[in-house]
């Protein structure tokens, strides 16, 4: 039931919210995959730095 289904209470919407970045939001964008993977791994890298930071508190 795509388009009207409730996921844990959330409605699905296929429409991109930022029209300017619509190209980035389409399915199969390798560049966006790389960006998002980098964002996720960057967050983990930040936490590694946070470990070093907390060690100095």
């Amino acid at each position: 039931m795509p388009g009207s289904s409730i996921a844990n209470g959330s409605f699905m919407s296929p429409a991109p919210i930022f029209p300017r970045f619509a190209g980035l939001c389409r399915k199969g964008s390798t560049m966006l995959d790389i960006l998002l993977l980098s964002l996720g791994l960057g967050a983990f890298a930040l936490m590694v730095a946070y470990v070093a930071g907390c060690d100095r508190v």
Binding site: A7, G9, S10, F11, M12, P16
Partner: peptide
């Protein structure tokens, strides 16, 4: 937690991100 109150169109770049 992960539960949703509902009523929110969650699958958008802003909310997903």
């Amino acid at each position: 937690n992960g539960s949703a109150f509902g009523g929110l169109t969650a699958d958008t770049p802003w909310l997903n991100g």
